[in-house]
Design a protein around this nucleic acid. Structure first.
Lengths: 322, 322
DNA sequence: CCCCCTTATAACCAGATTGACTATAATTGG
DNA sequence: CCAATTATAGTCAATCTGGTTATAAGGGGG
C-alpha cells in the first residue's frame, strides 16, 4: 500500500474515489395563518444541513437526524429534490469533492419541541416577488422590471438583447404574458445572472449592481429553497400533499388559504370546493367551527384511504389559473 | 493524527464521513421501430455505471464519461432520477457507504460509434407485463394474476389478505380497474415483495417461488430501470421530451408510435395529431415521404423554440387514456 | 390500366371538465 | 333586529377530451 505517500503529500497527491463528502440539506416547509414558512438556522440565512455519516441508516434518516438536532423539528413527509456536485462547490483546499443532496420536507409547526429554537420565516422574505395573492407585488413592476430592462440593454448585440428581454418577460409575466407561479427557479436564476441578488456579487462578478431588497442565504441555499418552492407549487396540483401541512381537522377555506399561500396566488372559491369534493379527498367530521366568524364552517379531515386507492394517479388540486 | 490506528484496524475502526463512494448509474433509452430500448452492458444484465471520480467536472459529466467509455454511446438529454444509500447497498466488508445517483438519458441509436459494442434491448424483455399495445398481455392474466392471488392468500389475517388483493388489483388493473401505465415501479415492487422476480430470491427470502418469465439484472438495476420507465411515461405527458428520441425529421405517425412504445399503450390517432398541432410543438418541413407506404406523409421537425416560449409550462402530450 | 389496400388528413359530435359568476343559508356582533 | 361575514349550493358558457366517420393520395397486384 502507498499509504505513506498519501499521508505525506496529502492534498496534492492523486485523489481516491473515496475523497468524497455528502451533505444533506433540507427545505422544511410549514404553513400558518396564510404564511408559507421555511425552517432556517443561524441568522435565518441557512437551511438545516449536515454531512451524511457512517451510522446513518439511510440518507433520509440522516437528514431527519440533522434537522431534529439543529432545530428540534421532527419531519414527516420527505421527498428528494436534487443531487449535485459541481466544481464551484469544492471544499476548502480543493481536497474534497462535496456532493449535496437536497430534500423537501412538509410538516406543521405544532410538532416542534419547545427545547430547541426553531427559526421559521415566510419564504416570501427571500422571494418578495413571488407573492401575487394581492395582485402583482409593487417590487416586480417598480424595481425588477426596470432593472431587468436595464440588464437586457447591457447585452452585446441586438439579438442577445431581444433574447434577454424575452426571457425576462416569460419569467415575470411582462408584456401581457401570464404569470406562471411555477417558474420560481427560473426567476431566481435570471436575477442571479442579472446580478440582482446579493449572492451574485460574492463570486466577484462584474459591476456590482444594487441587489433587489430581499433576504439572502449562505452559499447556494437560496437557490435550493427556490427549487423546493417550485417543486411544491408544481406538486400540489397533481398529488394531495397539501394535507401534510394541515392540522388533522380543518375547514375548506383553511385548506384553500394554505394552497393559496403556497401558490402565491388566489383561487376561485366555489371551484376549489368542487374540485376537492369531487375527488373525495376529504370527509366531513360531522362537526363545525364558529372560530372562523360568520356562518359556522364544516370541519373536514383528509381521507388517507385515497393514498391507496389512486396510488399515484389523478388526485389533482386546482390548477390555480384564476 | 490517529492515522496509524485507522490504518491498522481498518474496517472495524470508527468511520470518517469521507469513507464514502458515489456511484453513477444510467438508464439510457432509445426507440427504434416501435421498440423502447435500454442500453446495457455485460450479459445485458447491468446498466452502465461507474464511480464518481475526482476529476469529473460534475456528476452529469462523470456519467457521460462512464457511459461513453463502456458503450461508445454519447448522451444528449439527461435528467436525474434518484439518489439513495440504504444499508442494503453497503459495499463488501461493511467498510464503505455507497451512494448511488441514478439518471435517465434519452438518445438515438444512430449516434452510437461503431468502435464499441452498444448492447440495446427492448425494456419489455425486463418487464413483459408492461406492454399493453396489443391489449393486456397474456402473462398478466395467465401467470401474474393467479400468482398474486396465491400470494395474497398467503398473508396472515383476513385484513392483510384483502389488503394484498387490493394492492395487486390497483397495480395491475384487476377487477375492472383501469390499467395505469405509470405504476411501473409499484408493479415491480409488488412482484419483488411477492417473490415473483428472480432478484427477490437472492436475499435468501422465504419460499423460493418460481419467478415470472422475464429478463433480470444485477443488484437493483432492474428497479432503477423501472424508476426510469415510470418517470419517462409520466414526463412525456407534460414535457416535450419525446423529441429527444426522434430523428431530426419525422412523420406524425412515427411520433405517435414512439409515444405508444414508451407508454405501452395505443393512443387515438386524430386526437394525437390535434394535440401536437394545437400546441405548435412541430412545424412542417414542406417535404413528404413515401417510405411509410400508403399516401405520402408530411414530414415535420420539432420547433425548438417552444422550449423557450413556454419554458416549463403547459406543453403536454396526450394523456394516453385511450 | 384499373381496382384495392394502406396510410394520411380533415371534419364532426357528444360528454366531461373548467373557469367564472350568482344566489341563498347560517351565524356573530352591534 | 339588522348588518356584516362566512359558508354552501346552483348555474352557464367555453373549452377540452375521447371517439367516430369521411375523404384524399399514394403504391402494388391482377
Amino acid at each position: 500500500m502507498n499509504d505513506k505517500a498519501k499521508d505525506t503529500r496529502k492534498g496534492r497527491a492523486r485523489r481516491k474515489a473515496s475523497d468524497i463528502k455528502a451533505d444533506l440539506i433540507a427545505v422544511v416547509v410549514a404553513v400558518t395563518d396564510g404564511y408559507p414558512c421555511v425552517l432556517t438556522i443561524g441568522q435565518a440565512n441557512a437551511l438545516p444541513s449536515g454531512p451524511f455519516e457512517f451510522d446513518h441508516r439511510s440518507l433520509q434518516s440522516g437528514l431527519r437526524a440533522w434537522v431534529e438536532q439543529q432545530t428540534g423539528q421532527p419531519l414527516g413527509y420527505i421527498e428528494q429534490l436534487y443531487t449535485f456536485a459541481d466544481r464551484d462547490r469544492i471544499g476548502a483546499e480543493d481536497q474534497l469533492r462535496v456532493i449535496s443532496i437536497s430534500y423537501l420536507a412538509l410538516t406543521r409547526k405544532e410538532y416542534a419541541i419547545a427545547s430547541a429554537k426553531p427559526c421559521w420565516g415566510s419564504w416570501y422574505d427571500y422571494f418578495p416577488w413571488e407573492d401575487h395573492r394581492s395582485g402583482t407585488p409593487p417590487v416586480v413592476l417598480d424595481v425588477l422590471r426596470p432593472c431587468l430592462i436595464e440588464w437586457a440593454r447591457g447585452a452585446s448585440g441586438g439579438e442577445a438583447r431581444r433574447e434577454r428581454r424575452r426571457r425576462a418577460a416569460v419569467a415575470f409575466g411582462f408584456d401581457d404574458r401570464a404569470w406562471n407561479e411555477e417558474l420560481v427557479l427560473q426567476r431566481y436564476e435570471l436575477l442571479y445572472e442579472a446580478g440582482l441578488v446579493e449572492e451574485a456579487a460574492r463570486g466577484a462578478h462584474e459591476g456590482a449592481l444594487t441587489p433587489v431588497p430581499s433576504r439572502s442565504m449562505i452559499a447556494d441555499h437560496r437557490r435550493i429553497l427556490a427549487t423546493g418552492i417550485a417543486r411544491l407549487r408544481s406538486k400540489i396540483k397533481y398529488r394531495p400533499v397539501v394535507f401534510e401541512l394541515m392540522a388533522p381537522v380543518f375547514t375548506l377555506l383553511q385548506l384553500q388559504r394554505t394552497v393559496e399561500a403556497l401558490a402565491g396566488r388566489l383561487v376561485n372559491k366555489p371551484n376549489f370546493r368542487r374540485l376537492i369534493e369531487q375527488q373525495e379527498l376529504v370527509e366531513e367530521t360531522g362537526e363545525t367551527t364558529t372560530e372562523t366568524g360568520g356562518r359556522p364552517a364544516k370541519l373536514y379531515r383528509f381521507r388517507h384511504a385515497v393514498l391507496d386507492e389512486t396510488v399515484i394517479a389523478g388526485t389533482k388540486l386546482p390548477q390555480t389559473r384564476g
